[in-house]
Amino acid sequence: MRETLTVIGLFVVAVALRSSCRNSVRKLGAVLFLTATFFLFYFPTGMIGVGVLGAGMWFLLPWIELLTRVRRMRLPLNNRLSHRAPPDPSFFPNAPESAAAMEEDGFEHVSDCGWEWAGMKQFFRLYWHPEERAVAAVCLCEQCDVAFAFISITSYDCSGNIWRTTNFPFAPTLRCPPYIRWNHVPCERSCFHQILQNHREYLTKNKLDAKLRVPDPEEIEDSIEKEMRRQVEHNLEAGIIRLTPDGHHFKYSGRGMIFLWGQFVKDMIRLC
């Protein structure tokens, strides 16, 4: 009974810690989940290796999603943005506040648009600022009943490189081309003013203040489409994805499934 109560107690404490608002406490709860799982397999067998394998099973959970839904996905090779009405604010977390903050900082509204990827709807509210030489977007991703929003600020240098600061909460599901430079800030940082300051510091750190070009508001949507197409081409060359027989869609290859699993594990560790 002692071993059984130890495992149950560890799981109860882990659940309690996971309900905390503090990130460090939630991470401690995740460690306790692994510890409880280790002892769940170790106590009956007395073998440390079995306990380690048991705890490691948590990192195999993404394969359920990969082998069921992701393997069957077929994504369009050429996806086009279409103009859309803003979604209900109740499904668009922090969007009104973020949009108001962008306007306070002098950003001008350009358009509202979106597209769909394998059942996931993405909505973009786009802004630009000629003096900042930047494009800002507040984005909503919605799939089934799950929705999350994030902010991105993008600058373009004269060499064609893209410099982006974002609080996007997940690891990318496609490999990024080398000309796209990401500056990830914590996903809980939802204040646009602070993200803009992080973006300015990022540009200054890379000595880009005098090398940026002013974006054309008429070409912002087109640049998003071209960026996605170039990213798809980069992943085709890398073997992460491959074309379907019809030539108009692509799907993840075996190598791509392993890449996605690695990205899921990164999210499990970072967001736990």
Results as ranks from 00 to 15, higher is better:
Gly119Phe: 10
Asp105Tyr: 12
Arg230Ile: 13
Cys191Phe: 13
Pro96Lys: 08
Ile195Asn: 04
Tyr179Ser: 07
Asn183Thr: 15
Phe170Asn: 09
Arg26Met: 03
Arg84Gly: 01
Ser159Ile: 13
Arg270Pro: 05
Val110Gly: 01
Ala137Asp: 04
Glu233Ser: 10
Met268His: 03
Pro86Val: 15
Trp128Gln: 03
His129Pro: 08
Phe91Cys: 09
Tyr252Ile: 14
Leu243Tyr: 06
Cys113Gly: 01
Val138Leu: 05
His184Ser: 12
Arg133Asp: 05
Leu60Ile: 11
Cys187Phe: 13
Asp157Arg: 08
Leu61Lys: 02
Leu174Val: 10
Arg72Pro: 06
Asn78Gln: 09
Phe39His: 00
Pro87Tyr: 05
His248Thr: 14
Leu17Met: 00
Arg189Lys: 14
Ala14Ser: 02
Pro177Ile: 14
Asp105Gly: 13
Trp128Arg: 02
Glu3Asp: 04
His109Val: 05
Met257Arg: 13
Ser82Met: 15
Cys21Pro: 04
Asn23Leu: 11
Val15Met: 01
Phe148Gln: 12
Gly119Lys: 14
Glu65Cys: 08
Val110Ser: 00
Arg189His: 11
Val52Thr: 11
Ala36Phe: 00
Leu75Ser: 12
Pro96Asp: 07
Gly247Cys: 06
Thr37Met: 06
Leu196Glu: 08
Ala137Pro: 02
Glu132Phe: 13
Arg229Val: 11
Met73Leu: 03
Ala147Gly: 09
Pro245Thr: 12
Ala171Asn: 07
Ser90Phe: 10
Tyr202Trp: 13
Pro177Cys: 08
Gly9Val: 02
Pro245Gln: 01
Glu233Lys: 07
Val265Gly: 00
Asp88Asn: 05
Trp163Phe: 06
Arg26Val: 14
Pro178His: 13
Thr37Cys: 04
Thr165Ile: 08
Pro186Trp: 04
Ser253Trp: 02
Met120Glu: 13
Leu67Asp: 04
Phe192Asp: 01
Ala149Trp: 05
Gly46Phe: 02
His248Met: 06
